[in-house]
């Protein structure tokens, strides 16, 4: 047997095992909007139970990346695999959500005309069919889970408040609570602390670290202090591809990262 074949076989085995260990496998993804390359051969992997922060200047492709993973946008090329065997590029938003991928928007998006309780109820994992919903009755198990989540996001006292009347930070937390109700295995969180006070930011970091104990979390963030609080691996995006990856300290020392953030 030639060494070249050996090497190839070895490499494919490595790729296989790499895929097997990932909950999210993004490989060589590119997407173009009207000639603008939003993502350019983007590749990264998230392991089960990992907390990952993704940073990058405006226009680096962070939100587009989330759109691709959650099925809102289709990539022009590349693979996106969930748990190494489900091809996410073939599914739509509802399918992907039901597979166990939750997404938090940059701007807090909750159901404003519903109470905090009903917001969580709607997000509660379980039947999503039209007729299931029509004849649905609140089960004790569901109620218990809602109560638990209310405690986690500290909105227990506001359960009957219309979501529209919550403060900005409370809405962010409610949205995170709704994601938890979906029982996702992978959570994508887009700028969770934008517009939050310092103490809210701190508490959010604690909350996300807590959540990451039982599932994988990908956080897109601008706030460096917050990313430091998360204390996790960081991926730096720039012009649609990965510029650097590693601990925050080492990434911050990377001359390319410094140039992208401070130069120009």
């Amino acid at each position: 047997m030639s060494t070249a074949e050996d090497l190839l076989a070895e490499e494919s085995r490595m790729i296989q095992s790499e895929k097997a260990a990932t909950i999210l496998y993004v490989d060589g993804v590119s997407v173009t909007f009207d000639g603008f390359r939003a993502l350019n051969n983007l590749s990264f992997y998230v392991e089960p139970g990992e907390l990952r922060a993704i940073i990058g200047p405006n226009g680096a492709g962070k939100t587009t990346m989330m759109d691709i993973i959650t099925g809102k946008t289709r990539p022009d090329s590349g693979d996106v695999l969930f748990k190494s065997d489900v091809d996410l590029t073939k599914l739509d938003e509802a399918d992907i959500a039901n597979l166990g991928i939750g997404r938090k928007f940059q701007k807090p998006t909750v159901f404003e005309s519903h109470t905090v309780f009903d917001n969580l109820l709607l997000a509660c994992s379980g039947g999503r069919g039209v007729f299931q919903a029509l004849f649905h009755r609140l089960a004790n198990r569901e109620k218990q889970r809602i109560e638990e989540t209310l405690a986690t996001i500290r909105l227990g006292d506001l359960r009957d408040m219309m979501a529209a009347n919550l403060s900005h930070g409370q809405k962010q937390w409610l949205e995170i609570g709704m994601l938890l109700m979906q029982e996702p295995q992978l959570l994508l969180v887009d700028e969770p602390v934008a517009g939050m006070t310092d103490s809210e930011t701190e508490q959010t970091a604690i909350l996300l670290r807590d959540i990451a104990k039982t599932r994988s979390v990908v956080v897109v963030e601008h706030d460096m202090e917050f990313v430091r609080d998360l204390d996790c691996k960081v991926t730096v995006l720039h012009e649609g591809s990965v510029l650097a990856e590693g601990r925050l300290d080492s990434v911050q020392k990377d001359p390319r990262v410094i140039e992208v953030y401070l130069g120009r």
């Binding site: 959650t70 739509d92 938003e93 939750g102 998006t109 709607l122």
Partner: peptide
């Protein structure tokens, strides 16, 4: 869109 990402069709 929030409803879609919550898994409802």
């Amino acid at each position: 869109s929030r409803v879609r990402f919550t898994g409802y069709r």
